[in-house]
């Protein structure tokens, strides 16, 4: 009996310990980023372009804009498609093709983002023979697509059949039921999925390295290389210049604020709703 109790006690201690241990890295990372980032962050960083090596000052304004641009581009391509696909899988998807598609989407979420980058590279960069914002958008779009599709499908599947039947009984046809009742009625849930997908894409670096590539000036053209916050952080972080490393921290601070902020506020918003 004493032995059993001792085991029990030990086990509980171990579990509690690991519960605490897991939080340590997260806290370390966040405090470190805040400490290093906040001190390097200033107005100039947010509003100016990079200066050449050796000169102090300068910022990542172009990269912040670039990230927003690329994410919007990817979202613009992937979100409508993802919602439609998710609806299809939940409402009409039967038979082998839907099953295959479901598995394919599942597997798609597991593809490393670097491989997705190569997809975008062979799909867009190779035929057009240049790095471009478009190819970066495509890469992010491919990352966003499966997440949006899955969330939409899961959310619509939670709707009870009686709701659908009630709509049909009102004399709406199937398309109207899907649009007015299912999609509009669940827009908050679908919106959450979309925001989570976007926040994930905003932090992606690997697929942008050889698609949008990066530059150090403003560009608005679809066909030109475009900077992004994560890629810029990567370049600066791996450089030997202290000034650049400092800016990498500031960039990380902005990025983490953006991503975790989006993530947490959506969760909070959803909790308030439900």
């Amino acid at each position: 009996m004493i032995l059993r109790k001792l085991k029990n006690y030990l086990f509980l201690c171990l579990m509690t310990l690991s519960g605490v241990a897991v939080l340590i890295p997260l806290i370390l990372i966040i405090t470190y980023v805040i400490k290093m980032g906040a001190s390097s962050l200033n107005w100039q960083f947010l509003t100016h372009l990079p200066k050449p090596v050796g000169e102090s000052g300068g910022g990542m304004f172009h990269a912040i804009l670039g990230t927003l641009y690329l994410v919007s581009l990817g979202g613009f391509m992937a979100i409508p498609l993802g919602v439609v696909l998710g609806t299809y899988l939940s409402e009409l998807g039967k038979g082998w093709m839907a099953t295959f598609l479901r598995h394919a989407i599942d597997l798609f979420t597991g593809i490393p983002s670097i491989v997705i980058g190569i997809f975008a590279y062979v799909l867009v960069v190779v035929p057009l023979k240049q790095f471009s914002a478009l190819s970066g958008g495509v890469a992010l779009g491919i990352i966003i697509l499966p997440v949006v599709t899955r969330t939409t499908e899961e959310i619509l599947k939670l709707v009870s059949n009686t709701t659908r039947e009630a709509g049909l009984a009102l004399g709406l046809n199937r398309t109207q039921v899907i649009w007015h009742i299912l999609i509009k009625g669940n827009r908050a849930g679908i919106f959450t999925g979309v925001v989570l997908a976007i926040s994930r894409a905003a932090g992606e670096t690997a697929p942008l390295l050889f698609t949008a590539f990066g530059n150090s000036y403003f560009s608005y053209g679809l066909m030109q290389p475009m900077a992004s916050l994560p890629a810029q952080i990567y370049t600066y972080a791996t450089s030997p210049f202290e000034e650049w490393q400092r800016q990498a921290w500031a960039g990380s601070f902005v990025l983490i604020l953006l991503v975790l902020g989006l993530n947490l506020s959506t969760r909070f918003f959803m909790r308030q709703k439900s």
């Binding site: 519960g19 897991v22 939080l23 890295p25 997260l26 370390l28 990372i29 470190y32 980023v33 290093m36 926040s199 994930r200 905003a202 932090g203 992606e204 670096t205 690997a206 994560p230 952080i233 990567y234 972080a237 791996t238 490393q245 990498a248 921290w249 990380s252 990025l255 983490i256 991503v259 975790l260 993530n263 947490l264 969760r267």
Partner: peptide, 24 residues
Amino acid sequence: IIGIFVEMIAAVPSIVFGLWGIFS
């Protein structure tokens, strides 16, 4: 709360992990 914290680890961009990895 701990659950949310653990999920937050998943949301941190990998570039930030990398940066923390190099310098800390």
